[in-house]
Nucleic acid binder design. Structure first.
Lengths: 159, 159
DNA sequence: TTGACGCCCATAAATACCCATGGTATCCCA
DNA sequence: TGGGATACCATGGGTATTTATGGGCGTCAA
């Protein structure tokens, strides 16, 4: 397995720990990491997490700008500054900081959703709402494009 | 861990000492250093600090200019001349000089922000304002990239 | 002597590690 | 093919260690 896929419902225990699903852990371990990178999404109440690929994506975004340029400095502050490294304990759990939990409105449950190079951490109810919205948008697109989208996408959106 | 990432809120005690967060200390120690390099930013009320990579970055910045050129001399004076080496005490704390504190308007609280090869030291309120600006710009950048096509980059930069 | 600075120790809170448990899926063998 | 044993996993909690912070004391220099 080389991509983060599937959705998992996880719980946070009384200490605030949350297990990372074993398949996700396997990908992290393949990067030689003992921690998960995690940062709040810019515009949505969700966290983005992952391993080396997530970090590489952020690096490449920053490296589009000349060293010491103002844009680069600000991007670095906004992106690197918001990243937290969540150490995996021997059982494969992490602790979400208060800041991260607040951003995603997470209390004691979380939905982890694989999105390829990384995975997202949602508060379960918000995830359901977001998913419903996303499905609705896909439906509209399908209507607009008609026959074009009527094959694979109809399976992807679970209709 | 190989980069300065994340944001930490630290306090200065009555003696003016400030703890360097353990993850930052680990990076400094990896350079074999027992001190932190620190200098005022040229254009913002913030301090830039770090280890060997910070110094290397400053070197390369200066080396962009022709040897013995006036610009180079001035830059070298402005950068090298303003660098202070802040010794780490046995508990991992440093003392900010009056000059550094004045430049960043720091009194008894500071926000330390990882920006990859180095970290920044902000007065907390000023940091919040700066971050809000930076985020706004990142949003704009994201829109620009987003409109180019929804491929890999739209995942890399985090929803 | 006085103040600035470095070292030492103290402490509370946060964190990391250890072991335990119950459930589930898988495997193996009759 | 069925059923028991097994391995893995998510979760729970106790305990040791680390961390950030505070304060005391000695030393060195002005």
């Amino acid at each position: 397995m080389e991509r983060f896929v599937s959705t998992y419902a996880m719980r946070l225990d009384s200490k605030g720990r949350m297990s990372i699903p074993a398949p996700f852990r396997a990908l992290i371990a393949r990067d030689g990491l003992e921690h998960v990178y995690c940062h709040p999404a810019l515009d949505l109440p969700v966290l983005q997490a992952g391993g080396a690929r997530l970090m590489a994506g952020i690096d490449s975004l920053i490296e589009r700008y000349p060293p010491y340029s103002e844009a680069r400095e600000e991007l670095a502050a906004a992106l690197y500054g918001s990243i937290e490294t969540l150490r995996l304990d021997p059982e494969g759990r992490v602790m979400l900081s208060e800041g991260l939990k607040t951003h995603a409105q997470i209390r004691d449950e979380a939905t982890l959703v694989g999105v390829g190079d990384s995975f997202r951490i949602w508060e379960p109810i918000r995830f359901r709402a977001h998913l419903a919205e996303a499905k609705a948008k896909v439906r509209i697109l399908k209507q607009q494009f008609g026959s074009q989208g009527a094959t694979r996408d109809s399976r992807a959106d679970g209709a």
